[in-house]
Design a protein around this nucleic acid. Structure first.
Lengths: 194, 194, 194, 194
DNA sequence: AATGAATGAGCTTTCATTCAT
DNA sequence: AATGAATGAAAGCTCATTCAT
């Protein structure tokens, strides 16, 4: 198909996400990945220069999915608050599904000092939210003295981090809705024009 | 007591922090650590059951230092806002100093599915802030409908996460004060009784 | 004919010599060679049955060039001593240009226990010198008790080996002439009718 | 015993020489060597930093043995010619025993561009022969215009090279004495005061 | 004849851990 | 308690070779 990335590349990527989700990065060998992907050991290196090269590829893939979903679900939303609710929902959803991979991506990128890549990957996400905040500012939805660039980052990171802590910290699932609501209120108060 | 902990235990811990700060966890071998600590290879295993056992020990150590410093500097502070400023300052400070170790602790704990330990380690920090929030609530400093337990976690994690992103993302150092102020304003608005 | 050999065959051979000169045999992959030669991976195997099959081919090629040049330059020489000077000059010249390849050919052939090939390759060179020595004997230029077959080999190998050591051992280039002269004198004394 | 090198180091070295003699360097894995030596895989790396580090160690070992034997057998010899006969005999002997290892050492060192090491290893051998040639010069045994330093190298290399070619080229063994005699005559004529 | 993606065996090397001293 | 030589499993990666196109 048109949009579909090269078959083997995508297969390996997905296998990697799967296996790492299960076993963690350190316990995942290339051998595990290729076995799952159904390709030969050497084939991995035709598509990724090394094991480390997986990390940004996975991160990009996951964030791409997330952002796509968020954009799709917010197309009809007019109010910033509705958008934020979607952001929270989707972030929690993707975090639940891929919690291990997300943590390993974050730490993997951080550890390898390739944080610029991380920033580059998040750029479109940040920009999308910055744009929304600008709009909300113009509409007098949010306080005028908010620094849009920083606030966009604060919000995105905060929601992401909170969801990671929630799922990775094995919080009881029945507290989920309360927690999400609290985050929403927190954000709303933090942004709202007094 | 102050210098209480057994000399070798502490030596190894500090050496580990040092070496991991420099080289990252994956590139740090027990051999590196013991060399730096000036003890024999086998000695490591007299104090830590395995390499993985280092991670919570280091995390506890670092958070202990942070919390101690924060408590010390906030003893005289009466207003929640002053306390929060100290929290932000100290978090950024400790993150700057130990950024690599912090990331690796976080991911290390997460990856090994030993997140309960993480929660246990943070417990005193959370409790301390919960207590402060309760007080502030009673004093009508902050909104009455705030869920203290969750909010404590949200704040601590948010500040920590923001500082990590700041330093690891290699943001220009001259934006530091602006960024910290923005975080403070963000938090203040989020908590303030409207 | 001159450029006779099939284009691709020759291209691969030359690429191989080039790359191996630069990187050494062990660090040279078929992939490197075909890239340099501008042909596909599989094409290599249309012309050479294996990587090892390169070695005698390269050796033959190089010795062929050397011998051709020597014969050309000695056509007009009548005295054995003049011929020997050319042999020394040309051997040093070719060794300088292809030192790494020469060593690897020698060792490569030796290691693979295909030394018969080596002998076969050198056969024309040996025979050519044997013939000259016979002549010189008949002309009373050299001692009568010299064993022509062995001496031919001794001379050729000695000059070759000396030049290898010279260039590979990174001797100062300004000692070159002195060294060549010493070899010449050595040989002359060794052969000269007393 | 006293002079005996550290047990494991020597064991590994000897095993390496053995296995490489049989299979050649490229076909010899560390695994083969340690199996033969009766030590663990990792133990190899306690004594040699890498596979390549074996080469100079082996070369030194072999040349050490050779030189020791030559010195021993020439203690009572007064005439240079007698010494040269021993040199020829011993060189052929050691070459016969270790032909494959010798070739791989030579090429290995050459290939790795560590020819300085080669020179360093040969230094004592060269010096020993230089001294003898000086003496012979003073005694009017050999021509006065001989350049001692170069000639020592020419002789040693020539004899070595000839013996390699002889054994590696699988010459008939019954020609051995004739060939050695021819080398001796060749050398004698090359050196003798006319 | 020519291609080059795919293969997978096999290598070197690392390093957490053990244990005799 | 302390040592550090020895272990050996396990991993990442390479690359000669094949084969469907």
């Amino acid at each position: 198909m048109s949009g579909s990335k090269d078959g083997k590349h995508q297969k390996i990527l997905e296998a990697a996400i799967d296996v790492i989700s299960e076993k963690g990065l350190d316990n995942t060998s290339i051998s595990d990945i290729v076995k799952k992907a159904g390709v030969a050991q050497g084939t991995f290196y035709l598509y990724f220069s090394s094991k480390k090269a997986l990390i940004p590829a996975i991160a990009e893939n996951l964030l791409g999915i997330t952002l796509e979903r968020i954009k799709e679900k917010t197309q009809t939303k007019e109010k910033l608050w509705d958008v934020l609710e979607v952001v929270i929902d989707e972030t929690f959803h993707i975090t639940k599904t891929y919690k291990d991979v997300i943590v390993f991506c974050y730490s993997g990128l951080a550890i390898e000092h390739s944080m610029e890549k991380w920033e580059a990957i998040y750029q479109p996400y940040y920009e999308w939210l910055e744009e929304l905040l600008e709009q909300a500012k113009r509409n007098n939805e949010i306080a005028a003295d908010i620094h849009v660039k920083w606030t966009a980052r604060i919000i995105i990171n905060m929601v992401e981090n909170a969801s990671e802590r929630f799922y990775i910290g094995m919080e009881q699932d029945d507290t989920l809705d309360g927690f999400k609501k609290e985050i929403f209120s927190f954000l709303k108060r933090a942004l709202l024009k007094p």
